[in-house]
Amino acid sequence: MRRRLEVYLNRETVHLVLLGMAATGMGIGLGRFAYAALVPGMIEAGWFSERTVGLMGAVNLLGYLLGAVTASSFARRYPVHRIIQCSALGIVLSFLLCILPQPSGWFYLWRFIAGMTGALLMVLGPASVMRLLPEAVRKVASTCVFAGIGVGILLSATLVPMLVKHSNSFGWAALGIAGLLVFAYMFRWPAVSFSNGQHARALDRADKRALLMAGVGVVIVAYALDAAAFVPHTVFWVDYLQRHLGWSSAAGGFQWALFGIGAILGPFLVAMLSARFEVSHTLLIALLLKSLAIMMPTFLHAPIFISLSSLAVGALIPGVVALTSGRLAELVGLEHHAWAWGLATATFALSQAFAGFGFAALYSGSFSAGSVFVLAGSLAMIGVFCLLLIKQHRVQV
C-alpha cells in the first residue's frame, strides 16, 4: 500500500494531474459554466437584453463544437503544449477584455473564442496528460484530472454571484484574474507530440468508420445520452427544490454547493474504483447509479435523499466524463484517443444543447416537473444498455 501511494504521489505525477485539472477547470469551469453566473448581472446592469445574452451562450456552444471536432487536426499540425497554452490565454482574455460594456459584436467574438479554446483544452489537456503519465499510474491518475470541472462549477456557483452583486465588472475581472493565475501555472506544460513515433499514422475515413462500428460509436451514443440526462440537475435543480418542493432559497443554495463538492470528489472516487475494476465495468456502474440518482428526487423528497441526489449527480458528472475518456482510450489506444475524445466531446455538447431546449419546454409546460427527472434518468439508463453491447477491449484498424 505504501509503495503504491509513493508511485501515485510522485512529484511528476502530481504535477501532471494538476496541469490536467487546470485544463479541464479552464475549459469547462471558466470557459462555459462561469458565464451563466454573469448573465443576471449583465441584464440588470442594462448591458444587454435577455435575448442577446442567450445568443451569446449559443455562440459559445458553437465555438465549443468547432473546437472539439478540430482538436485532433490541430494536434497533428502544431505543438500541443502551445495549443493548450494559447487556449488558456484565450479564456483569460475572453474575461479581461469584457470587463466594461462594449458593443454586442465584441462579446459575441469573445464568447466564441472562449467556447473554441475551452473545447481544445477539454480534448487536448486530458489526452496529452494521459500520454505523459507513466503506464503504472495512467488509468487512475488520468481520471483525477477531471476534478477540475468540479472546481470550476463550485467557483461559478459561489464566488461569481457574490461579486456580481457589487458590480458586474467585478465578476468579469475576478474570473479573468483567476484564469490568469491558472494560465501562469499552465505555462509549465511539458512538450508532448501527437504526430511522431507511434502516433504517425492518421486515421482515414474507412478507419474511422470501422472504429465507430466496432464499439466507439456506441460509447459516444451512451455519452450523449448521459449529457442529456443530467441537464435537469444543472438547470432546474434549485428551482425544483424551491418552487415545487417548497424549500427555502438558502436550502436550495446549500444543495447546489453539495452538487459542486460532489463534482470535485467524483473523479477521485471513480479513480479508486478504476484501480480495482476494469474501466468498462466502472463506467457501467457509474452510469447506472447516476440514472437512479437523477430519478430519485421525483419519488423521495426527504432531505437525506435530496442531498444524496445532489452529491451523487454532482460527483458522477465529471466521473462519467473521466471514465468515458478512459474507455475510449482502451478501445482506440493512445494514438487515436484525441480523435475519439474530440468526437465524443462535440457530441456531448450538441446533445446538451438539444436537451436544454427540450427539457425547458417540458419543465414549463403541462409535463410535471418531477417527471422531467424521470425522463432524464431513463436516458441515462438507455446509455447503460448501450454499453452492455460492447465486448471489445481494443479495436484494431
Rank of each mutant, 00 (worst) to 15 (best):
R51V: 14
F277H: 08
R51S: 09
I304D: 01
E6N: 15
T52H: 10
I264S: 06
N168E: 14
I113P: 09
K139H: 07
Y185F: 05
A355Q: 03
R32C: 09
W237V: 10
K391D: 04
Q242Y: 10
T52V: 11
V218G: 03
W237M: 05
Q392E: 08
Y240D: 13
I28S: 08
R77K: 07
N10C: 12
W172P: 02
F194N: 01
V397R: 15
S378H: 00
H281P: 06
P303G: 05
F357T: 08
F299L: 14
I113K: 13
V129M: 08
H337Q: 06
S193C: 10
G90N: 00
R188M: 13
I382N: 04
V92H: 01
M295W: 01
A257S: 14
A127W: 00
F95P: 10
K165T: 12
S72I: 09
W106A: 02
L159H: 02
L66H: 08
H81F: 09
A214M: 02
L225F: 12
T158R: 02
I285R: 04
T298H: 15
L212E: 03
L38S: 01
C86T: 04
G215C: 04
I306V: 08
L283H: 10
I264P: 13
L181Y: 04
I83C: 10
R11G: 09
A376V: 00
G260Q: 09
A45R: 11
E50V: 15
T324Q: 09
W247V: 10
A114P: 10
L273V: 11
L96R: 07
V123R: 04
R201Y: 07
A173R: 07
L180Q: 04
L225D: 09
L258Q: 00
M122N: 13
L284Y: 10
L175F: 06
K290E: 14
S169Q: 13
T70P: 06
R201H: 07
A322D: 02
F194S: 03
A136K: 12
A312L: 13
S49P: 10
R138Q: 15
L16A: 03
L292Q: 12
G356P: 05
L311G: 05
S73Y: 13
L311R: 12
S128P: 07
R82N: 12
I264L: 11
H244P: 03
S104V: 15
V238R: 12
F299D: 01
E335R: 05
P126H: 12
K208G: 01
M56L: 13
L269Y: 10
S128A: 07
T13R: 08
Q255P: 08
W247M: 14
V137K: 04
P190Q: 12
P267D: 14
T158C: 15
